[in-house]
Design a protein around this nucleic acid. Structure first.
Length: 985
RNA sequence: UGCGGAGUAGCUUAGUUGGUUCAAAGCACUCGAUCGAUAAUCGAGAGAUCAGGAGUUCGAUUCUCCUCUCCGCAACCA
């Protein structure tokens, strides 16, 4: 409250003392936010009042809304993508909470997997080789926990609410047990089989390598052109070939794979030619791709050549050739990956030594058995070698076998050409030796497994998954098409990894027949063991203590068993979070169960678009397999964060924006504001510059709040609130406007259109409030008696706006809204934090339909806009300075005139001038327009107190030039004008 | 290469069952006002061939096709 405090003895004009009689804005809400310093204090405050627990308490009995968190990988500090992800989720959780839902949020962390294991490997170095497995696991666990803690603190720093004290972690004992239980579920329902798959293999380290562990480097290989003789009827390919000696030529850089050669692949759509090398009917004929014919002929020195026939590769399907040195028939196969830029267009295919080869082999039912052992030694297939002694390459390492095989080809005349080739080749990241492709035994989940629908009808796993996709809301809508395509075309899910940091595939295999023991009872026992001791138990407990005495293999009766040492794919871990968390956590279980039973409870997954192949995908498969339905009802996807030029953020470009750094320098609120400012469904640009923009907008919004608060001094909502019907027209209009804003914002929160909230709040704060309402209100707020009806009318609305806006903005500006909340006039029984409050109800802001009033004022604003132009013109001509120095005369006709006359009393205020006169334009000359303006220098004398130009301005005590309006205000305020004194003279 | 997405003022976003009310808003920028929101505030101005091209139409930013650029995911290099 302002108090009149005469400044005795100060020799100045009377003006400063008059100024002291004004009610200028006053608030303890600071202009400068100091976010980096103050946000941590507020976080500590929230922790001290256990805000998250309070929110859960407040949510009791409300309908539930579940947002299930996709776990970020715990191997580093958070980046902008994480901040975006968690920020959006926080907006959802907070807005749902304030919309009246019980929206618990249990964050999660993905902890197993290769990247962490590699990091730990690097740290342990050679020591790892001597360490027992549980000790290495312990190191992995500690490593992951370190980043769980770091990321937790970083997410909390940017204001994300959630159960951070007890998040879910895929490495927790419970979670590991549930993961294993889910695997057993697959096993028992018949989804799991063991099969071959080619993987990168390091023969030096004798281990499978993940793609991330492979680096490309230059390598010299012996490239060879090899003749494969046709054994099927040449005439079937082209009549011109009848009776000829026909071959094809393959090109390879890995001669050691030739013993595993089972097929030659041709592109079905390519043109192939049959070239006769030399003259006469006995000249050999070679089939190669037309486009590569000249190149191949040159490389193999075939000259001259004559084209005998030309045909599509498709005709070569299932022709047969003779293997160059083995007693084996080679099949002609078709494959679209055959290219026309290198080689001959005929690709030697060894299903056990290449990805493409493998899948082609599967299509043609070829044997994929790998005859290269873990250390890279070749063991020749005895069935394909009918000679007395094994071939020279038998038992050799693949690299050593290369020259032996080349020599053998040369001897038999199958070698047409050969030369060393330097090319990019995969190498082991650790030992830097070249790696090979090797078909190994793996565990798979079969997508074509027969399953039953809920109604009992038969279908396949793949098909059911696709049907369940259709029942989910995908936002944006194209996500449905995307994931459907992926599920429709994906191969079987390989769930095994030859690693240690993960959940073991805790299965016993018969030493005799390699079949797993299938026992529900045993599975339960092991799950229980995991619950008690964690996954380490699989490594520390010996076979005998787990297996029942006298256990025998159901297939072969064997009694010797070994533990499977593979672990589960990490995508299986996180993909079962709905099972390990939503179905198991007491806080989530009831709501999730209501969701699964179709009781209308939503379950939302919200992640980056990359998760269509990741978490959305793996979660869908596990839930469809185990529960027959999708694990979510709504999937929302975010785009990618890019830099200002639209490039992906990367370490090498150095164009990344570190959210933690932004939070420390500008405030977590600024990170949040950035998240809200962009349409997250598309790719988003971020940069220091854009963050700066957000910081500037922040200042504007904050300052608007500050002004609102500054004008609420002395206002007690209970005591001073003016009834809606008694409000001044302008104030009523602003209330209608606020209701309209609230309605729109509530709709946008519902649709996750946060950027529209951001835009609308900015625009409201800047246009409606700062540059219009608040500006125009200054005269009333400053000069009228504080308790006058006019001022209370405005305060009622300012208070209502502040109360509404602070709640509407709270999910995004979580720190600032709470700070504003504390500075609002206190009301008994209100919540301790804005986050415990609910969104305002539109009809409680303003009881009527706002549309008619908004429409009426829209016309008024059109008139105002033109009037402002006229004022600006006068200002440019230096006729006036500030608007109060002007009088405006408006002449209008018809409806416009009626409208103006009905608002006659408010026009002065709206235009912020000293006087507005409305005249009937019909009596005046017309020139096309409905409205005419005359702007003139205000008549009368400037009031020394309110700066309005008034006709009657006189003395009031020592004060000279005080208008009658101010005089009565001063009287109402009980301020006696000081009498002239010596000091004042 | 395949699947999917995006391209409206310097920036972030509006917009369109195709049409006089469609090229909009805020910010940033420039100029001006004010000095009673002052590490503030107010006003005005300029700024876009709606990625490019072709087509459908009386008329396209909006519909169709093509091209270019960028992004994600997956794959490939015998």
């Amino acid at each position: 409250m302002n108090k009149f405090a005469p400044s005795h003895g100060v020799k100045m004009s009377p003006a400063p003392e008059l100024k002291a009689t004004l009610t200028l804005p006053q608030t303890t809400f600071p202009m400068k936010a100091n976010l980096p310093q103050n946000e941590p204090l507020r976080l500590a405050h929230w922790a001290s009042i256990s805000l998250y627990q309070e929110l859960r308490k407040a949510g009791q009995g409300r309908p539930a809304y579940l947002l299930h968190d996709g776990p970020p990988y715990a191997n580093g500090p958070i980046h902008l993508g994480h901040a975006l992800n968690k920020g959006l989720k926080d907006f959802v959780v907070k807005s749902k909470t304030m919309a009246g839902f019980d929206a618990p949020y249990v964050p999660g962390f993905d902890c197993h997997g290769l990247p962490i294991e590699i990091k730990v490997d690097e740290k342990l170095g050679r020591k790892k080789l001597e360490m027992p497995v549980p000790s290495v696991l312990e190191a992995c666990r500690a490593y992951a926990q370190k980043y769980v803690d770091l990321q937790t603190s970083q997410f909390e720093r940017i204001g994300c609410f959630g159960r951070w004290q007890t998040p879910y972690k895929t490495m927790s004992r419970d979670y590991e047990a549930r993961t294993l239980e889910a695997f057993y579920g697959f096993l028992e329902k018949g989804f799991v089989y063991r099969g071959l798959k080619p993987v990168y293999w390091c023969i030096h380290d004798r281990t499978a390598l993940a793609e991330a562990e492979v680096e490309y480097d230059m390598h010299t290989s012996p490239s060879v052109y090899v003749r494969y003789r046709l054994t099927s009827a040449p005439a079937a390919i082209a009549p011109a070939l009848a009776g000829r000696d026909v071959s094809t030529i393959i090109w390879t850089t890995t001669p050691w794979t030739l013993p595993a050669s089972l097929a030659v692949a041709f592109h079905p759509d390519f043109e192939y030619v049959a070239l006769a090398a030399g003259e006469g009917p006995d000249a050999p004929v070679y089939i190669v791709a037309a486009e590569l014919a000249a190149q191949t002929a040159a490389a193999c020195k075939l000259d001259p050549v004559t084209e005998l026939a030309r045909f599509k590769g498709a005709v070569l399907d299932r022709v047969t050739f003779q293997h160059p040195f083995l007693d084996r028939s080679i099949l002609g196969v078709l494959a679209t990956y055959v290219t026309a830029d290198t080689g001959t267009g005929a690709v030697h295919t060894a299903p056990s030594h290449g990805a493409d080869d493998f899948y082609t082999g599967q299509r043609y039912n070829l044997d994929s058995t790998c005859r290269v052992d873990a250390s890279g030694h070749i063991h020749v297939d005895p069935e394909a070698w009918n000679h007395a002694s094994p071939p020279a390459f038998d038992g050799l390492k693949v690299w050593a076998a290369n020259p032996v095989i080349v020599a053998m080809l040369e001897e038999s005349g199958a070698l047409l050409a050969g030369a060393p080739l330097v090319h990019s080749y995969p190498h082991c990241w650790r030992c830097h030796h070249p790696v090979i492709f090797r078909a190994t035994e793996q565990w798979f989940i079969g997508l074509e497994t027969p399953v039953k629908r809920a109604d009992g009808s038969e279908t396949t796993f793949r098909q059911l998954a696709i049907e369940e996709i259709d029942k989910v809301i995908w936002d944006p809508a194209w996500g449905k098409e995307r994931i459907t395509n992926m599920i429709a075309t994906r191969p079987d899910w390989c769930i095994s990894r030859q690693r240690i940091w993960g959940v073991p595939i805790a299965v016993f295999l018969c030493e005799g027949c390699q079949q797993p023991i299938m026992s529900t009872e045993l599975n339960r026992k092991i799950t229980g063991l995991f619950e008690r001791e964690g996954a380490e138990a699989w490594h520390t407990t010996d076979v005998a203590s787990l297996l029942p005495t006298g256990a025998a293999c159901a297939h072969c009766g064997g009694t010797e068993f070994r533990k499977e040492t593979d672990i589960l794919d990490v995508w299986f871990d996180s993909g079962t979070s709905w099972f390990a968390v939503c179905e198991s956590d007491p806080e989530l279980k009831p709501a999730y169960s209501a969701f699964q039973n179709g009781k209308g409870t939503e379950c939302l997954y919200l992640e980056g678009g990359d998760q269509h192949r990741g978490w959305f995908h793996s979660s869908l498969l596990t839930s469809v397999a185990l529960r027959g339905r999708a694990p979510y009802s709504h999937v929302s996807t975010a785009g990618w964060t890019l830099d200002e030029q639209g490039r992906a953020m990367s370490k090498s470009l150095g164009n990344g924006v570190d959210p933690v750094d932004i939070a420390n320098r500008m405030g977590g609120e600024i990170v949040r504001l950035w998240v809200a400012s962009v349409d997250f469904r598309e790719d988003m640009a971020a940069s220091e510059n854009l963050m700066q923009r957000c910081a500037e907008l922040y200042r504007k919004v904050r300052n608007t709040f500050r002004f609102l608060l500054g004008n609420l001094g002395g206002f007690d909502p209970i005591r001073d609130r003016v009834a809606e019907a008694d409000l001044l027209p302008l104030d009523r209009y602003m209330l209608a406007r606020t209701r309209d804003l609230a309605e729109r914002i509530l709709g946008w929160y519902k649709d996750f259109e946060f950027h529209r909230v951001y835009q609308a709040v900015n625009e409201f704060a800047i246009v409606d409030l700062s540059s219009f309402y608040l500006d125009v209100l200054k005269d009333r707020m400053y000069t009228f008696a504080p308790t006058s009806q006019e001022r209370r009318s405005a305060q009622t609305v300012l208070w209502q706006i502040a109360e509404s806006l602070v709640r509407l903005v709270a999910p995004i500006l979580s720190f600032t809204a709470d700070e504003v909340w504390e500075h609002l006039p206190s009301v008994e029984g209100r919540e301790a934090s804005v986050h415990l409050a609910l969104f305002p109800k539109p009809e409680e802001i303003f009881s009527e339909d706002p549309a008619p009033l908004l429409n009426e004022w829209k016309q008024l604003f059109e008139i105002r806009d033109v009037a402002m132009q006229a004022l600006e013109g006068a200002r440019q001509e230096k006729k006036i300075g500030k608007a109060l120095e002007a009088d405006v005369e408006i002449r209008a006709i018809g409806e416009t005139l009626d409208l103006l006359r009905s608002h006659a009393n408010g026009l002065k205020e709206i235009l912020n001038v000293s006087r507005v006169t409305v005249l009937d334009g019909a009596k005046l000359e017309r020139s096309g327009a409905d409205v005419f303006y005359t702007v003139s220098l205000a008549s009368g004398t400037k009031c020394a107190r309110c700066w309005n130009f008034m006709p009657e301005v006189g003395d009031y005590g020592i004060w000279q030039n005080v208008c009658t309006r101010c005089q009565s205000a001063l009287t109402e305020m009980g301020i006696a004008p000081p009498q002239p004194t010596e000091a004042a003279q």
